[in-house]
Design a binder for these strands. Structure first.
Lengths: 145, 145
DNA sequence: TGGCAAGCTCAAGCTAACTTCAGGTCTTCT
DNA sequence: AGAAGACCTGAAGTTAGCTTGAGCTTGCCA
């Protein structure tokens, strides 16, 4: 295969990502690219899968930091095989399960609220201070974490 | 009841929200406050419930704009009754159901991926361009919407 | 009538995840 | 060889949802 090194524009086209997004991921360390003598990025075919994973995981609500952690399960140095990917994919599945569980519990509590008509802090379980205060600090505190 | 008008500090204490957050919500139009002759905000007791709802809905992943739409179902002018709240709460419940459905479908597809070992754009259903391109425009495009 | 905590209004800052822009360099095709 | 188009870097801008700070005014208790 002669075309083993893919320029950024084409990998963008193939994944549907913006060129700028891919550059951003590289800067964040989510992907690594080689460079030509003229300093242009050249990606491997395996990076397409990596980028796909990033898109999927993001779609499921994971932040790039979490995604980075998941991707760290892949072997460094060599191109990951299908078997290498399995634990990563499974880990993502667990993340989905967690999220579904959370929403289910929330739904149950909300049903109680419809029943009792409360929705006030004194009576209702839906809001509990401890949880909210957890993500303190400046900037937006992301919900549903 | 003499204490019907609540200053911002106390409503903050009662809801667990920061004073600054409440001011921000008022500025966004999510809550309305009366003012004293000296220009200080005074809230109604019903606003506590309103703020609770905001917190809950946010927790479930709704943005303030969506929450604003939900709150628009409440009657303007008079204080909402328990019955007034029911459609709003139910609407929130539907939102949760939707989200759960989405995650369930994602999980199913991911299971297929574990089976076939793919996770590439050409073969795998997990990523489909059309969907992603939907949220175009500048700024971050929020996933899982 | 003090005094001081609690409020008020801007304006600017912060995180996440990118995009856009300006000003220049490679590559590739003819 | 020349030109068009793809790339590069670095800095600044964007949305969401608030927080922080500066500088000033109210409100309430002793």
């Amino acid at each position: 295969m002669k075309d083993d090194l893919i320029p950024i524009g084409e990998i963008a086209r193939r994944t549907g990502l913006a060129v700028s997004a891919i550059r951003y991921y590289e800067q964040r360390g989510l992907i690594v690219a080689e460079r030509t003598s003229g300093n242009q990025r050249r990606f491997r075919r395996a990076d397409i899968r990596r980028l796909s994973f990033i898109m999927i995981a993001q779609r499921l609500g994971l932040g790039l930091t979490e995604i980075e952690a998941e991707l760290a399960l892949l072997p460094k140095g060599r191109a990951p095989t299908v078997l290498d990917w399995q634990p990563v994919t499974r880990s993502l599945r667990r993340a989905i399960d967690l999220k579904i569980g959370l929403l289910n519990r929330a739904r149950g509590k909300l049903d109680d609220c419809i029943g009792c008509g409360c929705l006030s802090l004194q009576k209702c379980q839906m809001v509990n201070r401890g949880d909210m205060a957890g993500a303190a600090g400046p900037g937006p505190r992301f919900v549903l974490g």
